[in-house]
Amino acid sequence: MVSMDYQQINADHTVFIQRNDGRTTILVVYVDDMIVTVDDEGDIAQLKSRLGKEFEMNLGQLRCFFGIEVARGAKTIILSQMKKNEHVSIEGYYGSNWGSCLDDRRSTSGYYMFVGGNLVSWKSKKQPIVASSTTETEYRAMALGVAEMMWLKTLLVELKTDQGA
């Protein structure tokens, strides 16, 4: 994608963006799936042609991605998540269970994140070490949750979706 003048964003290396003459193309690649959103039908036809020479593809219409609904009119594409000019909120919750594994006394921690009220990320994992207190266990869970929240914030800013969350 870089050879096709797309820029790989820093927040997520599976997201590529291209801006030309006021038009924007965003491409998300995940394993064997690809999501493309563009301002101009000519741009998508050109992208399909170039990618079709290298990959077998079947691109359908995008309906929803990352909690953003996509509606199409005759000459417009409308992305909606929140009311126009409002902030996109990021909410995160975390928790842990100190020494929950009876075999090795390691704690389990987890988090879940919402963007604009939509669940977009979650994780539950046994902590790699035995914590010496409930406070340490909660701190480790909070650190994981905050790191995920910061990654989401960076992703939204780079995609120009965030307006100051």
Rank of each mutant, 00 (worst) to 15 (best):
S124T: 15
G110W: 11
S3N: 15
D12F: 03
S107A: 13
F66M: 08
Q81C: 10
T76I: 14
K153S: 11
T134I: 09
W122R: 15
K53T: 09
L62V: 09
S49W: 04
V70M: 12
G99D: 03
A45C: 07
A165Q: 11
A11G: 09
E69H: 11
G110A: 15
L155Y: 00
S133W: 14
I77Q: 09
N118S: 15
Y6A: 01
D43G: 08
D33C: 08
S121K: 03
R140V: 13
G60E: 08
Q8L: 05
F55I: 00
R72Y: 14
A74L: 10
L51Y: 01
G95S: 06
W98E: 02
M142G: 04
K125I: 15
D162M: 05
M82V: 14
T161Q: 04
Q163R: 13
I9R: 03
Y93F: 13
Y94C: 07
V15Y: 01
E54P: 00
Q61Y: 00
T161R: 03
V2G: 11
R72Q: 09
S49T: 08
D5R: 08
V31F: 09
V115W: 04
E69G: 09
V115I: 15
K75Y: 05
I44R: 04
V146P: 09
R105H: 11
K126Y: 09
W98M: 03
K123A: 12
L155I: 00
I129N: 14
G145R: 02
K123E: 13
I35Y: 05
A74M: 07
S109Q: 07
E54C: 02
S109K: 02
G22R: 11
A147C: 15
R72W: 04
R106N: 01
I77H: 08
F65D: 03
G73N: 13
S133R: 11
R23W: 12
D21T: 10
G164C: 09
E69Q: 14
V157L: 04
S49D: 10
A131T: 10
Q8D: 08
R140N: 13
A74C: 04
E91L: 02
S89I: 07
D40W: 06
T24M: 09
V28H: 05
G145S: 12
S100F: 08
F16I: 03
D12G: 05
G67P: 07
S109C: 13
I68D: 04
A45S: 11
M113N: 07
G164A: 10
S96Y: 05
H87P: 00
V146H: 12
A74V: 08
D104L: 00
F66V: 06
A71V: 14
